[in-house]
């Protein structure tokens, strides 16, 4: 997130001092990315150094006001016009974690996927609860919140995909082992070991022993 451009965006409406800038930024974005006041002042100093804002006097309480310059306005609108490059996507760590998990023996990848999905769903429930309470007229805040909702949803869809890939891979590996008689231990846990196995696709048939089969819980 660009603090610099966020402050310029708020200043485009008129002069503000530091705390006002922070409060307005949070109000406009649904308080989803809280700003540190120190960050606000450091950024204002840099913006002033670069000629993008300038001081606009003080009030009786000694609040220092800033106003946007023409150069600042140009910088702001060129920022709006530039597509955002997602260089640091928050789920990269997750992708790397899962990539490593499938290469390390003895790791229950499906369990990792499920735990992550559960966490993402819980966050999604949180965002949805906030959204349900937002006045639909609060467009700016709604848009930020919906962005988080769609990102969580995308992560969950991707996790569903990972789980399906991992399960299919596990089944195919087991099939290969069962079909190779020389492979030691191939009969255990393979498709051929399931007593009523006659169907390769229906998940609801008498369950087979797989690495991901877990016990049901009472709720």
């Amino acid at each position: 997130m660009s603090v610099k451009h966020s402050l310029l965006a708020v200043l485009a409406d008129g002069e503000r001092y530091g705390y006002q800038l922070r409060a307005e930024f949070e109000e406009r974005t649904g308080a989803t990315w809280p700003l540190n006041i120190g960050q606000v002042y450091t950024t204002l100093n840099r913006l002033e150094r670069d000629g993008l804002v300038e001081p606009a006097g003080q009030d009786a309480a000694n609040h220092v006001f800033y106003r946007i310059t023409d150069a600042g306005r140009d910088e702001l609108f060129s920022w709006f016009a530039r597509p955002v490059t997602r260089a640091e996507r928050p789920r990269d760590e997750l992708a790397v974690k899962l990539a490593l998990a499938v290469t390390v023996g003895g790791v229950d990848v499906a369990a990792i996927v499920h735990a992550q999905r559960k966490h993402a769903l819980a966050a999604l429930q949180d965002y949805t609860r906030v959204k349900a309470r937002l006045d639909p007229a609060e467009l700016a805040a709604s848009l930020v919140l919906e962005s988080m909702i769609f990102q969580s949803e995308a992560e969950i869809r991707w996790l569903d995909h990972v789980e399906a890939r991992v399960l299919r891979h596990a089944r195919e590996s087991q099939t290969t082992r069962v079909e190779r008689p020389a492979d030691p231990g191939s009969a255990k846990g393979g498709r051929g070991a399931a007593p009523t196995d006659g169907d390769t696709d229906t998940a609801t048939r008498t369950p087979r022993t797989t690495a991901t089969a877990r016990k049901g819980k009472t709720i």
Partner: peptide, 8 residues
Amino acid sequence: VLDESAPL
């Protein structure tokens, strides 16, 4: 039933 989730 495998599991359940509630808000954070």
